[in-house]
């Protein structure tokens, strides 16, 4: 049991650090934002592991969902002078 939780915690934190690293060094902004949303979801998992379900909810809704939508919108806006309708896949949060 403890070994299993250790493996899970280890994998989770490693994945978070890896995702953070790759989203910060990703050349394509759009991909970076998608990675950021994935990172937010892993964070929500980490909050659950640390017995903070309130923060997990807030993280999933506000941080990953909302910031994700706003970031996608901004990246879409600065990619072309006239925004094209392609950023709708993100309203699940």
């Amino acid at each position: 049991m403890t070994a299993l939780t250790w493996i899970f915690d280890g994998l989770l934190t490693a994945a978070m650090v890896y995702l953070a690293w790759s989203l910060l060094s990703e050349r394509d902004l759009f991909k970076a934002v998608v990675l950021f949303i994935a990172f937010g979801l892993l964070m929500a998992l980490a909050w659950v592991r640390l017995r903070a379900p309130d923060i997990a909810l807030a993280e999933a809704a506000i941080s990953a969902g909302l910031s994700g939508v706003l970031l996608l919108d901004a990246v879409g806006a600065i990619r072309s002078p006239n925004p094209v309708p392609e950023d709708t896949s993100s309203d699940s949060g």
Binding site: S67, A74, V75
Partner: peptide
Amino acid sequence: VRRILAFNI
């Protein structure tokens, strides 16, 4: 955008 991402991290 990258800086704002970094701020969030």
